[in-house]
Simulated assay, not measured.
Amino acid sequence: MGAGLLGFTAGAVIGSAAANAAARPVAVYGAPAPVYAAPVVVRGSASCAARYASYDPASGTYLGYDGLRHPCP
């Protein structure tokens, strides 16, 4: 009789602990949101002249493949 009561008590304690562990919410952390910085725009810079052969320093634009002038990025 004593062994049966001991087994019942141990089972109740273990079962209760398992049920409580399953009921607790688990914190899930995702990756932080990306932070974007605005691009640094320097009009009339040497990098634009080096990158675009059609760069016009007077207007700060270059001639795109679409035939339109675009501001230097």
Rank of each mutant, 00 (worst) to 15 (best):
Y65K: 15
G60I: 04
A33V: 14
A17N: 11
Y62V: 05
H70V: 04
A38V: 05
V13G: 03
G30W: 07
A27N: 09
V26L: 13
D56Y: 01
P73T: 02
C48N: 04
L6Y: 12
V41N: 04
T61Q: 06
G15R: 00
V26G: 08
R51P: 05
A18M: 15
P73L: 01
S16A: 13
F8L: 15
N20Q: 15
H70W: 06
D66H: 02
V40K: 04
S45M: 01
C72I: 00
F8A: 15
V26R: 12
H70Q: 03
V26F: 11
A53T: 03
D66L: 02
V41L: 05
C72P: 00
Y52K: 01
A49F: 07
T61I: 02
A49W: 07
A23C: 08
S47R: 10
A49Q: 08
P57W: 00
G15N: 01
L5K: 14
Y55H: 06
P39H: 04
P73S: 03
V26E: 14
A53Y: 02
C72R: 00
S54Q: 00
D56F: 00
S47E: 11
L68M: 09
R43V: 09
G30H: 09
A10F: 14
T9M: 14
D66M: 03
R43Y: 06
A50R: 08
A50F: 05
G4Y: 09
D56K: 01
L63Q: 00
P39Q: 08
L5A: 14
